[in-house]
Design a protein around this nucleic acid. Structure first.
Lengths: 219, 219
DNA sequence: GTAAAGATTTGATGCTAATCAATAAAAACT
DNA sequence: AGTTTTTATTGATTAGCATCAAATCTTTAC
């Protein structure tokens, strides 16, 4: 059956046996959504625990001036929901979650999930790890936004994922880095002037990897 | 014995029985440190899981210009360590942690803690909850810093904890809110001019609670 | 190939809060 | 009390980006 094979394909559930997967399938459903669908609005309550089985999503918030603040991407085969507590049966989302591609979502009744799994010491490790990795995404966000200025943000992204940088449109990069496209353009020019990178036909080549690292490693 | 009664006093361990507490006591130690001691440096590895049993600590990071960025307070009876993963036996701290008061710390060997407790499905719920509450502290930090400008930050703190606001020195408040003391002073003056608060002998009285709330709730 | 649409860059200007410097006020001494 | 030290305020200036507008370059559609 489709739902069971989907569950089996998720790392999160790899510790379950056949019978447990049956139980899980009974409290779950799978839905497909098209690109740009907004799954979650900030601060809204939900009774379902969601997993992204296919596709790509992004988490973001809206600031005072109605600008979108990109938080992080959520890749397939991971937990989508943000866990705000374990004592209540209701989950409050911290951010908006929007689908970037057409996606499939596994939706599990959270109250029953707790009853049949967490409270029986099943999936605890998976659950903890999922929460930790969300927490780490927040940590890198804090690094990016508080510790780094715009030059450091760009340097960091060039250093850690040049391929992605060259693949995406400048507009999307500026969204991720939470700076304006104009600022991004100016920063790239500055790095080029300083002979740290070169820009050939819009494609970026790194000339001085160490200098790039030094920019965001600081001091 | 002292170490056992300390363990018993921590909510985190309330689900353990006497024998389990014995086991835990064997892989633990308690240390006292004086005010201003720095427990953890950012990015440093540790093999110990730390709990604050008495006192008060603060987590902070250092930005490019060597300014301290206050993250959050850590209160007694809670987990001090930041959990970066469960697969390794080493913990990497995300922030610096410094004691604000003279404090007592319970220190547990993390590898053995995992072996004797987490892997045996003990303390899983406590552990998960501790991680969630750390994650939530980061979330409110993100809210404060991204969504709020300096006026909104001050309004929020006045609204939610006036008592604390009046107790602390302006310098400490500005540290918490991550704005400069000069800015704080100017913001307070502005609020006073707008008749939202009054300042009598340095002590702040709220005149218009609704207006204050509107400033940071503000669409 | 050419027009239209979209993406990127450049220039000018403005806003928020940081920084620097000086003063004023309050608290802690003796 | 008076003096020193700490804390808070005020004024002037600046840094860092955002914003707006226009120009240029690139891609897409026909």
């Amino acid at each position: 059956m489709c739902i069971k094979s989907t569950i089996k394909s998720l790392d999160f559930f790899s510790s379950l046996n056949a019978k447990e997967i049956d139980t899980l399938a009974n409290i779950s459903s799978i839905n497909s959504y098209s690109k740009d669908y907004i799954l979650h609005y900030e601060k809204k309550a939900s009774t379902q625990l969601l997993f992204l089985t296919e596709g790509l999503a992004k988490a973001y918030k809206i600031d005072k001036h109605n600008n979108e603040i990109f938080l992080y991407y959520i890749y397939k085969n991971t937990l989508l929901s943000e866990i705000s507590n374990t004592s209540s049966n209701v989950l409050f989302s911290f951010s908006n979650i929007e689908l970037v591609e057409e996606s499939k979502i596994l939706s599990i009744n959270y109250a029953q999930f707790k009853e049949y799994f967490l409270n029986k010491n099943l999936l605890n490790i998976s659950f903890t790890n999922a929460i930790i990795s969300k927490s780490q995404q927040l940590q890198s966000l804090v690094n990016r936004e508080f510790i780094f200025d715009s030059v450091a943000k760009v340097a960091m992204m060039l250093y850690s994922d040049l391929e992605m940088f060259n693949k995406l449109k400048r507009h999307d990069i500026s969204l991720i880095l939470h700076i304006q496209p104009e600022t991004l353009s100016r920063v790239l020019n500055r790095l080029k002037r300083n002979k740290i990178i070169d820009i050939i036909h819009g494609e970026i080549k790194i000339l001085d990897l160490l200098a790039l690292e030094a920019i965001y490693e600081g001091r």
